[in-house]
Design a protein around this nucleic acid. Structure first.
Lengths: 137, 137
DNA sequence: AGCCCAATTGACGTTCACGTAAACGTTAAC
DNA sequence: GTTAACGTTTACGTGAACGTCAATTGGGCT
């Protein structure tokens, strides 16, 4: 009903372009918890989702530990009011960090745009150009 | 005229919240090239800017090598048309990578928002709530 | 001269995130 | 029935990005 699909280790590895070693490593760390079927690991749809989230965190430069921490926020038990309040604080921290990071990316994109314009200008002047090197800044 | 200011190693370290070891390491790798004044390193305003960019790259999860590569695009000599064309390609790659990364961040932000809403909903139901804990893990 | 403080150069240690190789077990195909 | 493909565990290796410690040096103060 929910997500009966099951995945072999290399199947998953191929889909997400990681090695089987990586998946075993993640299990070893407790970040993934596949079942066993006669020794062989069997990953569920939930495992698969979790893996996708971990890799998403990895792509933006989080440590795997951090990624998992965030993911565990995602399906945390809510629990008491006190717990929930703490959770909201953690969420806010994480959100702020992401916003900061996004700002860094925006800054980099702007830099790249600046460089690109300079390069294109150089290209347009290439016919009239002096052989001079000119200033870098 | 341009930026005469000079910086000592701990001065810079303090400003950017890194250790002096880090700055020495960056020099060792050739990513920073401070002058020497009787043995002591003297960093210029250019070095400082470079450092800021390196750390910006680091914050978004680039390897230091990658950061430097991008920075070197930033003040690359333009040179021939062929060089410029290659440069534009590299710029485009880098821009695409950054856009992808930004998308990952957006996705994470959305997830966090979803979790937050869920938690807040739980908080509002806390008065009518059963004492039951539900799932723990 | 004596001392402190900040800086220097090695050299080795550490953490993270896996890679790589060895030795072995199952299942399917030929 | 053996070989190939795929899986397992155990164990050691690796590259990046520094941390940490030792030994030393030079300037500044009193």
């Amino acid at each position: 009903m929910t997500d009966q699909r099951r995945y072999g280790i290399s199947e998953l590895a191929k889909e997400f372009d990681v090695t089987t070693r990586t998946l075993r490593f993640y299990e070893e760390k407790g970040w993934l918890t596949p079942l066993r079927e006669g020794g062989r690991r069997v990953f569920s749809g939930k495992d698969r989702t979790r893996l996708r989230l971990i890799l998403r965190g990895r792509r933006i430069g989080l440590s795997l530990e951090e990624s998992v921490e965030i993911i565990d926020l995602y399906d945390s038990p809510a629990g008491t009011v006190g717990q929930a309040t703490v959770l909201l604080e953690r969420l806010d921290e994480r959100r702020q960090a992401l916003l900061d990071q996004r700002a860094d990316i925006e800054a980099m994109l702007k830099s790249l745009q600046t460089v690109e314009q300079r390069v294109r200008a150089t290209l347009n002047n290439e016919s009239a150009g002096a052989a001079d090197g000119g200033q870098s800044r």
